Computed example of a mutant assay.
Amino acid sequence: MKLSRTARIVLGCVMAVGLAFVYLPLLLVLVDSFDADRSFGWPPSGLTGRWWVRALHSEGAREALLTSVRAGLGATGVALVLGSLAAFAVHRYRFFGRRTVSFLLVLPIALPGIVTGIALNAAFRTVLGPLGVGFGLLTVVVGHATFCVVVVFNNVAARLRRIPGSLAEASADLGARPWRTFRYVTLPSLASALVAGGLLAFALSFDEIVVTTFTAGPGTQTLPIWIYGNLARPNQAPVVNVVAAVLVVLSVLPVYAAQRLSADPAGGRL
């Protein structure tokens, strides 16, 4: 479809406004992390890098970062296993309720986070409580995995739809057993989709706060929860800005890498 010059200008302006609405607040956080003043304010009274040094030596921020990394890696590992298996089952086999399974796998990411958090909180209290398992890193990992499975499932399912079935058939015709076919034919074709799905899952888990609030125990504090808890402390405002800027960068990098890995050599997206 060919658009007129006026339509292109209007669409370009709308796009610019939309991007500015999303990214200008992130830019303000980055600028505020160098503000010499202790309080949130604009314009900055001066520029300094001492808050970055202070954030580097903040024990609470370091522990929260380590907890977020652990939770992200754990949720990503669970999501890679469950999401991949579910994608293979839905793609390779025809069974009753196949569409329902696909719908149920995608549903958690569409539900409001507070609904998922309340449901998981009630489930953990009912199931894990009598077993003596309290809220902590394990419950956070399980909570994050519920929506991280979706991105892995979507990436692997999309790639499986693009892999010709003739490759596996040719491998079988040449005498390869199913496991050997999977190892040398299917898995290499899925490698970039698995990595992309894992990176997206880690990014989702790393900056999650709503579900974490309902599934973390008193001693479990991820980086987003640490930021939220220190916002009201005046002396911590500059350090919070620094940690928030780092969180933005750490969240953008895996998403960008996943987008590059998901790129179709022909110019599309898998």
Rank of each mutant, 00 (worst) to 15 (best):
R50D: 15
R50Y: 12
R50K: 15
R50V: 13
W51E: 05
W52T: 03
W52Q: 11
W52H: 14
V53W: 11
V53D: 15
V53K: 06
V53A: 14
R54P: 08
R54Y: 04
R54T: 09
A55L: 12
A55K: 02
A55P: 04
A55R: 07
L56G: 13
L56H: 09
L56C: 11
L56S: 15
L56W: 13
H57K: 08
H57Q: 14
H57A: 11
H57V: 11
H57T: 11
S58I: 06
S58L: 05
S58E: 12
S58K: 00
E59L: 12
E59A: 15
E59M: 10
E59I: 13
G60V: 08
G60S: 15
A61W: 04
R62T: 04
R62F: 03
R62A: 13
E63G: 07
E63S: 13
E63V: 07
A64F: 07
A64R: 02
A64S: 14
L65M: 13
L65S: 05
L65T: 12
L65R: 04
L65I: 02
L65D: 02
L66T: 07
L66H: 02
L66A: 15
T67K: 01
T67L: 01
S68Y: 02
V69W: 03
R70L: 10
R70G: 11
R70N: 08
A71L: 02
A71F: 02
A71D: 00
A71T: 07
A71N: 03
A71E: 03
G72K: 06
G72C: 11
L73F: 12
L73T: 04
L73A: 09
L73K: 08
L73E: 00
G74N: 09
G74R: 05
G74V: 06
G74P: 10
A75Q: 08
A75G: 14
T76F: 05
T76H: 06
G77F: 04
G77D: 02
V78T: 10
V78I: 15
V78K: 09
V78M: 13
V78S: 10
V78A: 14
A79Y: 01
A79L: 12
A79Q: 03
A79E: 04
A79V: 08
L80Y: 02
L80K: 04
L80D: 05
V81L: 15
V81K: 10
V81S: 10
L82C: 13
L82E: 06
L82Q: 05
G83K: 00
S84N: 10
S84M: 12
S84F: 07
L85N: 01
L85W: 07
L85V: 14
L85E: 03
L85G: 09
A86F: 00
A86Q: 02
A86R: 00
A86M: 05
A86H: 02
A87I: 01
A87N: 04
A87L: 00
A87G: 09
A87Y: 05
A87E: 08
A87M: 07
F88G: 10
F88C: 10
F88E: 14
A89V: 06
A89L: 14
A89I: 00
A89W: 06
A89H: 01
